[in-house]
């Protein structure tokens, strides 16, 4: 059974290394967020502050639309909860990945950086997740996220439309790189991923269900498909470590 290195410095460096592609992808997305935030009337400081304190993509885009529409504070809380609820599932999965005696403040630090991408690189670490790895990945990824927002809000169009378009697939490319290799090793993961894709397509195009917001859609699909997969293909003991 492979295990992660125990030296915090090595883990931190691994975190930085895995965080770099995330930061690059974030630059593009947060750049777009910065532009949109500025055009909905927020200052450069406010836009950057949102990115620094939230570190979510869908949640932030939804947030500025609530602000622009002068929605109620309660509506803001509700929107954020529904769109970001999937992080709760990721956080629960990570609770099984850290050392049981990990102190609360380190847990809070890891929790701050639970995004789709950082979660993705964390959960595929062999063995126990070191908080030093999270620190490295979060540091570099959040730096990219905040910098992109600042640049987008500050200077609008430095990047050509062709470049922004190309960078648009960066995050999805990473998701594919996270899912495909384990799916090659484990047919059950491949089956679960395929079910997720089919259901996602159904929810995107089929009448009635296509009106469900994307955040809610992801939660429904995650719960339904994961329950289904857990019942059909239960994982035995050590297999659940996700090691490659």
């Amino acid at each position: 059974m492979p295990s992660s290195p125990s030296d915090p410095l090595v883990n931190f460096k691994d975190g930085i290394r895995d965080g770099i592609p995330i930061a690059l992808g974030y630059l593009a997305v947060s750049f777009a967020f910065g532009i949109q935030a500025a055009s909905s009337g927020l200052s450069v400081f406010q836009a950057t502050l949102i990115s620094l304190t939230n570190v979510t993509s869908a949640g932030q885009f939804a947030g500025i639309s609530v602000i622009a529409a002068a929605g109620s504070y309660l509506e803001m809380a509700g929107v954020q909860m529904v769109i970001n609820l999937r992080y709760m599932l990721m956080s629960a999965a990570l609770s099984q990945k850290v050392a049981p005696d990990l102190p609360t403040y380190k847990r809070l630090g890891i929790a701050f950086g639970v995004t789709d991408e950082i979660f993705g690189v964390s959960i595929v670490r062999p063995g126990i997740l070191s908080p030093a790895f999270s620190a490295g990945a979060i540091l570099i990824a959040v730096a990219g996220w905040v910098l992109g927002t600042f640049l987008g809000a500050f200077s609008g169009e430095i990047l050509s439309a062709a470049l922004i378009s190309a960078l648009g697939v960066a995050l999805y490319g990473m998701f594919i790189a996270i899912v495909v290799p384990p799916a090659r090793n484990d047919r059950n993961i491949a089956a679960a991923a395929l079910m997720a894709v089919l259901m996602s397509a159904l929810f995107t195009y089929a009448p009635v269900v296509k009106d469900i917001s994307s955040g809610t859609r992801i939660i429904i699909i995650t719960v339904v498909v994961s329950v289904f997969a857990a019942l059909l293909f239960p994982v035995k003991g050590e297999e659940a470590e996700n090691g490659e």
């Binding site: 599932l89 999805y172 899912v179 679960a192 195009y205 995650t222």
Partner: peptide, 17 residues
């Protein structure tokens, strides 16, 4: 088992379409 499948299901659903 449920938590084991969560990341792959979420990321797949977010990627396609």
């Amino acid at each position: 088992s449920f938590l084991y499948y969560v990341p792959y299901v979420t990321l797949s659903a977010m990627t396609v379409p």
